[in-house]
Design a protein around this nucleic acid. Structure first.
Lengths: 130, 130
DNA sequence: TTAGTTATTGTTATAATATAACATTGTGTA
DNA sequence: TACACAATGTTATATTATAACAATAACTAA
């Protein structure tokens, strides 16, 4: 019996916050913002974040230790992610390019490594900051 | 007058350690290993790491908070990095593929963002762990 | 060479990010 | 109901990284 991932209370609170945000959020900034909703401890935040990442509702921007909601509608599991990051204003955008994802999904290195997942972060200047 | 980046004492000690290592090293593991050489504080390690990353002698594996020596002979500045990471044994290898680097260096997203740098991390199982 | 400048170092303290361990509560299901 | 399992709550602590400032070394130009 298949079941959509319905979020639990804490997961929903934290997802809503991230989803509303226009910028990536850091764990302790999330914690600060949900304390009035009864989430008091870092672990409660990290557990929800872990789960949300696992089911693909959010992504972690590794170079920034921050989290953004997935805006790639078909992305149910986080196995192929690409972002652009502005080095001045820190704006982060999820890249949705069929060509890019096809190229990377098919990429094989010479060691014969089989890849099940990748994360790509581009850095540069966004239109506004250029 | 051009000058090769000659490393300072601390930078050299820390680079040697990373360069000899067969696996990525974490900052506090580095600290532990160089204490007998007189490097006593985290900041001394982080400062050397920052500089070594800046001049391209080492790379940071963002998803692991760990550092490896650059084995891409021509890589003097860290602006285009790609790694494969085994999710079981945690072996990390720098990918050196002309095709890949060319594809990514030329990649332009639809927002017209101009990229000056990227970091790509592939995850999967290495030959041994498959 | 000497002063000015800049990079590097040393040091203490602290900030920011993340997990361990364990008791408790809720939720779905047989 | 009772079992299994996921999620929660809580305290403590581990891990990763930087702030602030004083001291020293290295480079540059008059």
């Amino acid at each position: 019996m298949h079941k959509e991932h319905s979020l639990t209370k804490n997961q929903q609170i934290i997802f809503d916050l991230i989803d509303k945000s226009t910028e990536p959020l850091k764990a302790y900034s999330i914690l600060f913002n949900v304390q009035k909703k009864g989430i008091k401890a870092p672990l409660q935040v990290y557990r929800a974040l872990d789960k949300l990442v696992e089911i693909g509702k959010i992504h972690k921007i590794e170079s920034r230790n921050a989290f953004i909601a997935c805006h790639n509608s078909r992305c149910q599991v986080a196995k192929a992610t690409a972002f652009s990051i502005c080095e001045i204003c820190e704006k982060v955008t999820e890249i949705s390019s069929a060509g890019l994802s096809k190229y990377l999904a098919n990429f094989k290195d010479k060691d014969g490594m089989k890849y099940s997942k990748y994360n790509l972060e581009f850095f540069g200047l966004c239109k506004k900051c250029r």
